[in-house]
Amino acid sequence: MIAERQESSEGLTIRPDDSGHSNAREKTEGTGSVGTEKLTPELTDFIIRWRDKPGNLIMVLHRIQETYRYIPRAIAFQVADLLRVPLARIYGVITFYHFFRLKRPGRHLISVCMGTACYLRGAEDLIQELETLLGTGLNTVTEDGEFSVEAVRCLGCCGLAPVLTVDGQVYGRMTKEHLADILAKYGGQSLSAK
């Protein structure tokens, strides 16, 4: 039982080459299938530990997103069972809070701060330049599944505005000119060469 779970959880670790998988998932979602992810034993334990605490849902969703980087539909179903709450409530919460994602982001997630300090210091230009470099807009994934760009509210580093993060690493005092180099660091050479 446990071995089986581990197996499926392994299949979930996000690898550079699993972009095709994400496309396939997108399609199957359209036809009503819910995907095949299974909760890892650690997550199951976590949920059971929190099950009787009031107000647990948001904390559980955080933990799930930490693991999968978004909230897979199959997992939402299992959470509903374990916590004994209706699926509709889970989706009600996920869709209310900006932090939770329903789609798998690219392998590297670029978050550009659009808080006031960053806005005044040219954050919009950064987003535009990223769109040009990556050939894809906000909240979408590049064709190769490598990058996605999202706009976020203040990251709390306003003294360094404009700021962006790549996979959580903070880059401050950004200008358009820095972006190609940063993408290259994360394996985006072909893009910056364009």
Binding site: M114, G115, T116, C118, R153, C154, G156, C157, C158, G159
Partner: peptide, 12 residues
Amino acid sequence: DEGDPGAYMDRS
């Protein structure tokens, strides 16, 4: 919760 975009007093 420090929601004001452009402020980080509480964080610090």
